[in-house]
């Protein structure tokens, strides 16, 4: 199976500190991989490196066929990152934030309006919330709006950093449904989470990070295990 992510001895520096200290990490296309590990293990940096946001300064790093050492901008249009920050503009409404992100990622395609509207409806952000500025939303509603952008952009690779944080029970279910729908549509998902039960229910495989390295990376054949039943739990 083709690899969506292939890291070999990848090093990412934050200042002089090696946040990724020689990471080997493979993710097959269509997989859902859970990255576990303690705080400071390098999970967020790994996701940011996959998104082309953190520069890989040594080793090899390919994402969706793009060599990140050569050009880390090229992959970004195909990637969505739901991180600790929501990446939203406070003074734009929910609908305006989603529309801006979709148009930026895909251009003014004909289904901009329909696609964004459909996503907002699925996430319960239609109706009165649609035209509310993000500054007036609760933390959970902001997370939902950020998730709406991920969904509306229809990326090939989803990078989710503590995606369940700040969401209520319904929001968590919606998130899980969105991830499963994306994978069913052929997308690849990498998520970092401390909420093992929920995340493992989504993942086909789990790896463990510590000290800026992936210490436990089960064979990709595990990806063929049935969804909802993690093949390896680190």
């Amino acid at each position: 199976m083709a690899l969506a992510i292939r890291f070999r001895s990848a090093v990412v520096l934050l200042g002089r500190f090696p946040a990724l200290a020689g990471v080997d990490f493979d993710v097959a296309a269509g997989e859902t991989v859970l990255v576990q590990g303690p705080n400071g293990a390098g999970k967020t940096t790994l996701l940011r490196a996959c998104a082309g946001l953190a520069p890989v300064v040594a080793g090899e790093a390919e994402v969706l066929g793009h060599d990140l050492r050569d050009d880390r901008r090229a992959v970004r249009r195909q990637v969505a990152l739901l991180g600790h920050a929501t990446q939203l503009y406070d003074d734009l409404t929910v609908a305006e934030n989603v529309r801006f992100a979709v148009r930026a990622a895909r251009g003014r395609s004909r289904d901009d309006g329909d696609g964004a509207a459909g996503v907002l409806e699925r996430l319960g952000l239609d109706g009165r919330l649609r035209d509310v500025t993000v500054a007036r939303l609760s933390a959970g509603q902001r997370r939902r709006t950020a998730l709406a952008i991920c969904m509306a952009r229809r990326p090939e690779l989803w990078l989710l950093d503590e995606p369940h944080a700040g969401l209520d029970a319904q929001g968590r279910d919606l998130l899980d449904d969105a991830v499963r729908a994306a994978v069913a549509g052929g997308a690849t998902v990498v998520l970092a989470s401390h909420e093992a039960d929920r995340a493992l229910a989504l993942a086909t495989r789990a790896v463990t990070m510590a000290g800026g390295q992936v210490h436990h990376q089960p064979d990709r054949r595990a990806a063929s295990a049935p969804r909802g039943e993690p093949a390896h739990v680190a």
Partner: peptide, 19 residues
Amino acid sequence: SVESADGARDGLRLSGLDP
């Protein structure tokens, strides 16, 4: 400053827009 709030600059970089 509007790009500095809540990671908006990362969103702009990830947007795929031509710099």
